[in-house]
Design a protein around this nucleic acid. Sequence first.
DNA 1: CGACACATGTAACACGTTACATGATTTG
DNA 2: CAAATCATGTAACGTGTTACATGTGTCG
Lengths: 179, 179
Amino acid sequence: MSIRYGLLALLERGPMYGYQLRSAFEESIGATWPLNIGQVYTTLGRLVRDELVESLPEHEAGQRPYRITEAGRTELVGWFETAIGRIDRPRDELTIKLALALATPGIDVDRVVHTQRAASKRALQEFVRRKIRDTRADNVSGRLVLDAMIFQTEAEIRWLDHCAESIGGSDPRPGAEQP
Amino acid sequence: MSIRYGLLALLERGPMYGYQLRSAFEESIGATWPLNIGQVYTTLGRLVRDELVESLPEHEAGQRPYRITEAGRTELVGWFETAIGRIDRPRDELTIKLALALATPGIDVDRVVHTQRAASKRALQEFVRRKIRDTRADNVSGRLVLDAMIFQTEAEIRWLDHCAESIGGSDPRPGAEQP
DNA sequence: CGACACATGTAACACGTTACATGATTTG
DNA sequence: CAAATCATGTAACGTGTTACATGTGTCG
């Protein structure tokens, strides 16, 4: 429901049309998760269907703004007030992968862990680089999104190391690190 | 695609029927993400459609086992060999929520953060309790899944604190902790 | 004019989720 | 026998994703 509520939140700032919504979304969230323009319109259609948003008369150059309704505002406030639990989230594919790898014949769990660890480490460095580069001082939300990615990736690496220790009889190869 | 590949991995141990698959899945993954039995059959149908799995003749008591195909095996190995990137994952709803809350009029970001923090802290304690209780020594995968939840939730709490510091002019209320 | 970017929208499909219909087997 | 449990499967719907069709305005 990220996009659904995302668009709703953007419309709370004032009426906007499709392309503006995409720009505003990517401005706030950053380039981490690009938003397909088609997705904007399908989601807007569903929001109109549920009467959380209403479509305004077409502006001059074929631009049709959408406005949040009172019901939409209520829904949005509810979203902000309600905390998100881990179980509400989609199943984590990596966790499932490793849990199942343990009992899958012919799969070298150590290799799976180390491949993922290398990729996650690269991703982490890329996030850090991006944070230093494209984060302008005024864009707080963009920086926080990048920080979230960094925190999550660091946790993932720690968990992978924990897994390697838990399962691997083989040593965690201390020479493989680049500090 | 968690369930799709999950079932594929379970079938790599040998042919199984629907109910067995659900039991085996929840046995490995733990009670964290319950798997609806209907989901097993819809997913099996799609796996058969894509010829990654084949349906075997019905056993005595109306039990229909499914067997992984050669193509399925190839697909599965590819899954285990390929690392998962942060961007491959679904958009993180909490991250988006906070990023958008910052520029949404009438929303008290501090309150959003603190509500979420309290919920995450409770969730963390619940995970730790579960880890101590229901984890038998032989069930490694179940323990690793719980560890993943713990690592992720800890990272989430740290990120929330980081957010509070970044945005809140108000102090991070040092008395609100229960160590 | 022709190419390109802006802008809207629809159709088709993927996966995940739940509710429902149906039958077989066990058990009180 | 009746109720509960095991077991299979389908129908309907939700969101997310992409490809496509279409129109408009701008600029070389």
